[in-house]
Amino acid sequence: MRKLLVVLGGLVLLHVALLFARPKGADASPATKRVRVGIVFDLGGRGDKSFNDGAYEGGERAIRELGADVTFIEPGEGSDREPGLRLLAAEGMDLVMGVGFIFTDDLNKLATEYPKTHFAGIDYAISTDSTGKVIPPPPNIAALKFREEEGSFLVGALAALAGGSKKLGFVGGMDSPLIRKFEAGYTAGVKHVCPDCEVIAQYAGVTPIAFRNPSRGKELALSQYQQGVKVIFHASGSTGLGVFEAARSMNALAIGVDADQFREAPGHVLTSMVKGIDAAVYDAIKRAQNGTFAGGIIGFGLAENGVGYVYDANNKAQIPDAVRAKVEALKAEIIAGKIKVPSTT
C-alpha cells in the first residue's frame, strides 16, 4: 500500500515538474497585428490529395507570404464541426473558414452569433426558396463557389480534339448536383468542337462511398474503353485511381480532377481539370488582411484562375499545338462571356 502511494506520488510530482518544461521555440507569442485565421477541415482531413490538402496549401502560403497566423483544426467526428468553428470564432479570429459544403449549416448558425467575424465556406451550398430564388448567405459569409463546369468544358474540348475517337467517357463519383456540373461542362465542351461525338457518362454510386471505390472506377472505365472510348474524364475522388489503372492496362488516356494527377499514371494522363482551392483560400486570407473582405457569393471560374487545365512539360507531347491554340481560344471566349457553359445536365 505505502509502496503504491509512493509510486503514485512520484508520478504526480514528475508530471507537475514536466508541466514547467518549455522546449525551445514553443509557444512563441504571435506578433500582434498579423491577420488571424482559423481553418476547419472536413472529416477526410489532411492527406486526401484533394480539397483539404488544397486548403492547407493555401493556408501555408498565407503564412509564408502574408505572415498570417493560421490555425488548423481537424474535427474527429461530425458533431465536432460546429464546436471547431465556434472555438475559433470565440477566440476572436479575423477569418474562420470551413472546408467543404458540409459546413454550410454550421457556418450559417455561427455567422449570426458572431456578426463581426468573417466567415468563408469552400463549396458553400447556396439554398433556394420554394420559388427557386437564391437565398443570399448572411452578410459576413463569403461563399467560395467554383465554376467547375468551365474547366470541365475545356478538358471536354481537349479530349474530343486530341483523343482520336468520337466516343468520350465520363466517370463520376456520387451522383449529385456538384458532380453533374462536371459532366454538364464536359459534355458541352465535347459537343462544342465535335457535334456528332458521343459522351458515355456513368456514376460510381449514389452515396459518398462512391468517392472512395477504385474497383468500381476501374470496372466502369474498362467497360467504357471496350466500347471504343479513348479518353475518360473522372470526377470521383479516389474512385478515379481505378480509372487511371484501367487507362494503364488498356493503354488509353484519362483526365484527372481537382489537382494535377499526372503522377497517378504517367503517360496516360492527358491533362487534369484543376480546381484552385489553395488560391481561393489564399485570396480570402489576403482580403481579410487588407480589409477588403466582403461576404456574398464569390465565384471562381476561368476568369479568376479558380479552375483550369494542366498543360506543362509532362503532357505537352500529347497535345498538338493546334489543339492547344483552339482550347485557349475557347477559354478566351468563355471568359469574354461569348460561350455560356451549362452547369446542369
Binding site: 503514485l8 504526480v12 514528475l14 508530471h15 514536466l18 518544461a21 509557444d27
Partner: peptide, 19 residues
C-alpha cells in the same frame, strides 16, 4: 498518473510545452 506523464513526454517530443 501514468497517462499524464506519458502525455507530457509526447507533447515534449512534439516540441510544445506540456503546461
Amino acid at each position: 498518473a501514468i497517462a499524464a506523464v506519458v502525455g507530457d513526454l509526447l507533447i515534449l517530443a512534439f516540441g510544445a510545452s506540456p503546461g
